[in-house]
Amino acid sequence: MGELVGWVFDGLLALSLVLLAARVVASARLFESIVLFIVFGLLMAIAWARLAAPHLALAEAAIGAGITGALLLSTFREIVTDQPPSAEAPKVLVYRLRVLMALLAGGVFAVLGWALLSIEVPAGPAAGEQARALVARTGVDDAVTAVLLDFRAYDTLLEMGVLLLAVLGARAAVAAQPPASGDDLWIGGEGDTPMVGALVGLLSPLIIIVAGYLLWVGAYGPGGAFQAGAVLAALGVLLRLTGRLVPLPRAGAFQRGVLVMGLAVFSLAGLLTMATGRAFLQYPEGLAYPMILVIEVALTLSIALPLVLLFSGSAGIAAGRSQHSP
């Protein structure tokens, strides 16, 4: 019985996801597309839950609810114009070609996926034992955290590089022209109500506690630097939106330090392991857990700050003035 209902649920989820994706693309209004994309993110979290990937559901929750939506709406706010929509229908041939391309892409994707699924699973107790023994050696109990920070630490190291590059790129785009004024619309503006101060005062400490909790719990289960960093970044977005953080044209030494900290600490750990005659980022036995912990704390901050800066569209941020004193 339970299995059948599970199938019904997955089927409904499949239909909803595909319907939402189609409407995101087809909707005539950009605002509607943005809202639907946010809802799509909610359902992706449910899909991760169904696929037994709570780490990803957690990341989706923090990034989808806290960052993507605000990012899209803020862009929408800037680019809205008075021009009427262009309702020019494409030529039939062009339209058919587009549909054909999409179908081809989807077909190739499905075939590749099918091939991927038919790869033999290294099943049996032996493979499981081996994997568990490897994970246990890292000092963390959680397999995904172990993969991110030990077995495939290169990926994570390079990811920090990508984040830094995105911030530098955005800064280069912004440097040509500072953000439009009127950014402080919130403070003293029509949106300001005493509720905002109360909400920020109540939520901020809670969000910081939850970020710390996620970082700590990452050693045992779903959580870790990525999720904690994303939750912290969402707090930054909230503070930026309510005028508690204001953009700066230049970042101070401290913020620059935080931006490169994850990359620096990670590389340093790698060099240290090499200095002791091991491979790059092959932690010494027994020291793996403390090293991973230090790296994770650095990563959390170095993930949160770039995301906030990218949202803010400025080189730096500073605590702003608030009308409602705490």
Partner: peptide, 9 residues
């Protein structure tokens, strides 16, 4: 925890 970010935006 983050539900309000969207409305504020």
């Amino acid at each position: 925890l983050l539900a309000t970010v969207l409305t504020v935006a």
